[in-house]
Computed example of a mutant assay.
Amino acid sequence: MPRHVDHDLRRRQIAEAVWRLAARGGLEHVTLRQVAAEAGVSARLLQYYFGTRDKLLLGALEILNTDAEQRARARLTQLGESPSMHLLVRGVLLELLPLDEERRNRHLVHVAYFVRFLNDPALAAAVRESPPALEKLVATLLGRARELGELPPSIDIAAEAAFLVAGAEGLQASVLLGQHTPEQAVSLIDHQLDRIFATSQP
Protein backbone atom coordinates (compact mmCIF):
# COMPACT_ATOMS: atom_id res chain seq x y z
CA MET A 1 0.00 0.00 0.00
CA PRO A 2 1.59 3.35 -1.01
CA ARG A 3 2.51 5.70 1.80
CA HIS A 4 0.56 8.95 1.99
CA VAL A 5 2.79 12.00 1.58
CA ASP A 6 1.89 15.40 3.01
CA HIS A 7 3.13 17.59 0.16
CA ASP A 8 2.77 20.85 2.08
CA LEU A 9 4.80 19.39 4.93
CA ARG A 10 7.47 18.20 2.51
CA ARG A 11 7.67 21.62 0.84
CA ARG A 12 8.03 23.23 4.25
CA GLN A 13 10.74 20.74 5.20
CA ILE A 14 12.71 21.80 2.12
CA ALA A 15 11.99 25.50 2.69
CA GLU A 16 13.26 25.24 6.27
CA ALA A 17 16.50 23.77 4.93
CA VAL A 18 16.91 26.86 2.72
CA TRP A 19 16.24 29.10 5.73
CA ARG A 20 18.91 27.37 7.82
CA LEU A 21 21.51 27.60 5.06
CA ALA A 22 20.61 31.24 4.41
CA ALA A 23 20.86 32.17 8.09
CA ARG A 24 24.21 30.42 8.46
CA GLY A 25 26.02 31.78 5.43
CA GLY A 26 23.86 33.63 2.92
CA LEU A 27 22.46 32.43 -0.38
CA GLU A 28 25.08 33.19 -2.99
CA HIS A 29 26.70 29.77 -2.96
CA VAL A 30 23.73 27.65 -1.87
CA THR A 31 23.14 24.84 -4.36
CA LEU A 32 20.29 22.42 -4.91
CA ARG A 33 22.55 19.62 -3.72
CA GLN A 34 23.28 21.46 -0.45
CA VAL A 35 19.60 22.11 0.16
CA ALA A 36 18.74 18.48 -0.55
CA ALA A 37 21.39 17.29 1.90
CA GLU A 38 20.26 19.80 4.56
CA ALA A 39 16.62 18.74 4.12
CA GLY A 40 17.45 15.03 4.05
CA VAL A 41 15.81 14.47 0.65
CA SER A 42 17.08 13.57 -2.78
CA ALA A 43 17.95 16.25 -5.31
CA ARG A 44 15.34 14.71 -7.63
CA LEU A 45 12.62 15.12 -4.98
CA LEU A 46 13.68 18.72 -4.38
CA GLN A 47 13.38 19.45 -8.10
CA TYR A 48 9.99 17.74 -8.16
CA TYR A 49 8.65 20.18 -5.58
CA PHE A 50 10.39 23.38 -6.67
CA GLY A 51 12.11 22.87 -10.03
CA THR A 52 15.00 25.28 -10.48
CA ARG A 53 17.19 26.93 -7.85
CA ASP A 54 15.52 30.31 -8.47
CA LYS A 55 12.07 28.81 -7.98
CA LEU A 56 13.29 27.12 -4.81
CA LEU A 57 14.56 30.39 -3.34
CA LEU A 58 11.33 32.16 -4.25
CA GLY A 59 9.16 29.35 -2.90
CA ALA A 60 11.07 29.20 0.37
CA LEU A 61 10.67 32.96 0.79
CA GLU A 62 6.93 32.81 0.12
CA ILE A 63 6.51 30.05 2.71
CA LEU A 64 8.53 32.09 5.21
CA ASN A 65 6.39 35.18 4.65
CA THR A 66 3.13 33.23 4.92
CA ASP A 67 4.35 31.61 8.11
CA ALA A 68 5.33 35.00 9.56
CA GLU A 69 1.90 36.45 8.78
CA GLN A 70 0.12 33.53 10.46
CA ARG A 71 2.28 33.78 13.56
CA ALA A 72 1.74 37.53 13.72
CA ARG A 73 -2.03 37.11 13.54
CA ALA A 74 -1.89 34.52 16.32
CA ARG A 75 0.12 36.85 18.57
CA LEU A 76 -2.25 39.76 17.89
CA THR A 77 -5.23 37.65 18.94
CA GLN A 78 -3.55 37.26 22.32
CA LEU A 79 -4.14 40.98 22.94
CA GLY A 80 -7.76 40.16 23.77
CA GLU A 81 -11.16 40.63 22.19
CA SER A 82 -11.20 44.44 22.09
CA PRO A 83 -7.66 45.81 22.37
CA SER A 84 -7.07 49.54 22.06
CA MET A 85 -5.71 50.89 18.79
CA HIS A 86 -2.53 51.76 20.70
CA LEU A 87 -2.01 48.10 21.59
CA LEU A 88 -2.83 46.93 18.08
CA VAL A 89 -0.36 49.32 16.45
CA ARG A 90 2.25 48.29 19.00
CA GLY A 91 1.60 44.62 18.27
CA VAL A 92 2.03 45.13 14.53
CA LEU A 93 5.31 47.03 14.99
CA LEU A 94 6.75 44.49 17.42
CA GLU A 95 6.31 41.81 14.78
CA LEU A 96 9.02 43.63 12.83
CA LEU A 97 11.57 43.20 15.63
CA PRO A 98 13.70 40.07 16.33
CA LEU A 99 12.33 39.65 19.85
CA ASP A 100 12.50 35.87 20.05
CA GLU A 101 14.26 33.00 18.29
CA GLU A 102 11.56 32.56 15.66
CA ARG A 103 11.52 36.22 14.64
CA ARG A 104 15.31 36.51 14.91
CA ASN A 105 15.80 33.56 12.55
CA ARG A 106 13.26 35.00 10.13
CA HIS A 107 15.06 38.33 10.02
CA LEU A 108 18.40 36.59 9.48
CA VAL A 109 16.93 34.84 6.46
CA HIS A 110 15.62 38.13 5.08
CA VAL A 111 19.07 39.68 5.53
CA ALA A 112 20.56 36.78 3.57
CA TYR A 113 18.04 37.39 0.79
CA PHE A 114 18.63 41.15 0.68
CA VAL A 115 21.38 41.20 -1.96
CA ARG A 116 19.26 38.91 -4.11
CA PHE A 117 16.35 41.31 -3.72
CA LEU A 118 18.46 44.04 -5.31
CA ASN A 119 19.32 41.96 -8.35
CA ASP A 120 16.46 39.53 -8.85
CA PRO A 121 13.13 41.08 -9.95
CA ALA A 122 11.10 37.98 -9.04
CA LEU A 123 12.42 37.87 -5.49
CA ALA A 124 12.14 41.64 -5.13
CA ALA A 125 8.49 41.48 -6.19
CA ALA A 126 7.82 39.01 -3.36
CA VAL A 127 8.73 41.62 -0.73
CA ARG A 128 8.30 44.97 -2.47
CA GLU A 129 4.70 45.39 -1.37
CA SER A 130 5.34 44.46 2.26
CA PRO A 131 6.37 47.87 3.68
CA PRO A 132 3.59 49.79 1.87
CA ALA A 133 1.05 47.21 3.04
CA LEU A 134 2.27 47.56 6.62
CA GLU A 135 2.16 51.34 6.35
CA LYS A 136 -1.41 51.11 5.10
CA LEU A 137 -2.37 48.79 7.97
CA VAL A 138 -0.78 51.07 10.59
CA ALA A 139 -2.36 54.13 8.97
CA THR A 140 -5.77 52.45 9.08
CA LEU A 141 -5.33 51.66 12.78
CA LEU A 142 -4.16 55.21 13.52
CA GLY A 143 -7.13 56.60 11.62
CA ARG A 144 -9.47 54.46 13.66
CA ALA A 145 -7.70 55.64 16.82
CA ARG A 146 -8.34 59.25 15.83
CA GLU A 147 -12.02 58.48 15.25
CA LEU A 148 -12.19 56.96 18.74
CA GLY A 149 -10.50 59.97 20.30
CA GLU A 150 -7.35 58.00 21.18
CA LEU A 151 -5.22 60.16 18.88
CA PRO A 152 -4.94 63.95 18.64
CA PRO A 153 -6.55 65.36 15.46
CA SER A 154 -3.33 67.17 14.54
CA ILE A 155 -1.43 63.92 13.87
CA ASP A 156 -0.41 63.33 10.24
CA ILE A 157 -1.60 59.75 9.89
CA ALA A 158 0.28 58.83 6.70
CA ALA A 159 3.56 60.38 7.81
CA GLU A 160 3.45 58.76 11.24
CA ALA A 161 2.59 55.34 9.80
CA ALA A 162 5.51 55.53 7.36
CA PHE A 163 7.87 56.68 10.13
CA LEU A 164 6.79 53.98 12.58
CA VAL A 165 7.21 51.16 10.06
CA ALA A 166 10.55 52.49 8.83
CA GLY A 167 11.74 52.94 12.40
CA ALA A 168 10.79 49.40 13.41
CA GLU A 169 12.44 47.97 10.31
CA GLY A 170 15.55 50.06 10.96
CA LEU A 171 15.83 48.60 14.46
CA GLN A 172 16.00 45.07 13.08
CA ALA A 173 19.67 45.31 12.09
CA SER A 174 20.74 47.09 15.27
CA VAL A 175 19.19 44.34 17.41
CA LEU A 176 20.75 41.58 15.28
CA LEU A 177 24.15 43.29 15.60
CA GLY A 178 23.76 43.80 19.34
CA GLN A 179 23.75 47.58 19.09
CA HIS A 180 20.39 47.62 20.84
CA THR A 181 18.92 44.97 23.08
CA PRO A 182 15.42 43.73 22.24
CA GLU A 183 14.22 45.56 25.35
CA GLN A 184 15.76 48.83 24.17
CA ALA A 185 14.15 48.41 20.75
CA VAL A 186 10.74 47.88 22.32
CA SER A 187 11.31 50.93 24.52
CA LEU A 188 12.06 53.06 21.45
CA ILE A 189 8.86 51.87 19.76
CA ASP A 190 6.90 52.63 22.93
CA HIS A 191 8.46 56.09 23.13
CA GLN A 192 7.21 56.95 19.64
CA LEU A 193 3.77 55.49 20.27
CA ASP A 194 3.44 57.39 23.56
CA ARG A 195 4.33 60.55 21.65
CA ILE A 196 1.64 60.23 19.01
CA PHE A 197 -1.03 58.74 21.28
CA ALA A 198 -0.58 61.53 23.82
CA THR A 199 -3.87 63.32 24.39
CA SER A 200 -4.27 66.87 23.19
CA GLN A 201 -5.57 67.90 26.62
CA PRO A 202 -3.27 70.18 28.69
Rank of each mutant, 00 (worst) to 15 (best):
R24T: 07
G25M: 02
G26M: 02
G26F: 03
L27Q: 00
E28H: 08
E28S: 06
H29S: 14
H29G: 07
V30L: 01
V30T: 09
V30Y: 01
T31Q: 03
T31P: 03
R33V: 07
Q34M: 14
Q34T: 03
A37P: 00
G40F: 04
V41M: 03
V41Y: 04
S42D: 08
A43K: 10
R44F: 12
R44H: 09
R44P: 03
L45T: 15
L45N: 09
L45G: 00
Q47Y: 02
Q47I: 13
Y49G: 11
Y49V: 04
F50V: 05
F50C: 08
G51I: 11
T52H: 05
R53V: 04
D54A: 14
L56Y: 00
L56D: 03
L57Q: 01
L57K: 04
L57E: 02
L58I: 09
L58A: 11
G59C: 08
G59A: 12
G59R: 09
A60D: 09
A60P: 06
A60G: 11
L61P: 01
E62Y: 10
E62N: 10
T66A: 15
T66W: 06
A68D: 09
Q70M: 10
R71C: 00
R71V: 05
R73G: 05
A74E: 05
R75F: 03
R75E: 15
T77Q: 14
Q78N: 05
Q78A: 15
L79P: 07
L79T: 05
G80T: 10
G80W: 09
G80F: 06
M85T: 08
H86W: 13
H86F: 15
L87Y: 07
L88Y: 00
L88C: 05
V89H: 04
V89R: 00
R90F: 02
R90D: 06
G91I: 07
V92I: 13
L93N: 02
L93F: 01
L93A: 07
L94I: 12
L94G: 01
E95M: 13
L96G: 02
D100R: 03
E102I: 13
E102P: 09
R104N: 04
R106D: 15
H107S: 14
L108E: 07
V109G: 00
V111I: 14
Y113I: 14
Y113A: 15
V115N: 04
R116W: 10
F117I: 12
N119K: 06
D120P: 06
D120V: 04
P121F: 08
P121T: 11
P121I: 13
A122T: 10
A122Q: 11
A122G: 05
A124F: 14
A124W: 12
A126C: 08
V127Y: 06
E129Y: 13
S130C: 11
P131W: 06
L134T: 09
L134H: 00
K136N: 12
K136V: 06
K136Y: 07
K136F: 13
L137F: 09
L137G: 01
L137S: 08
V138Y: 00
V138K: 06
V138R: 01
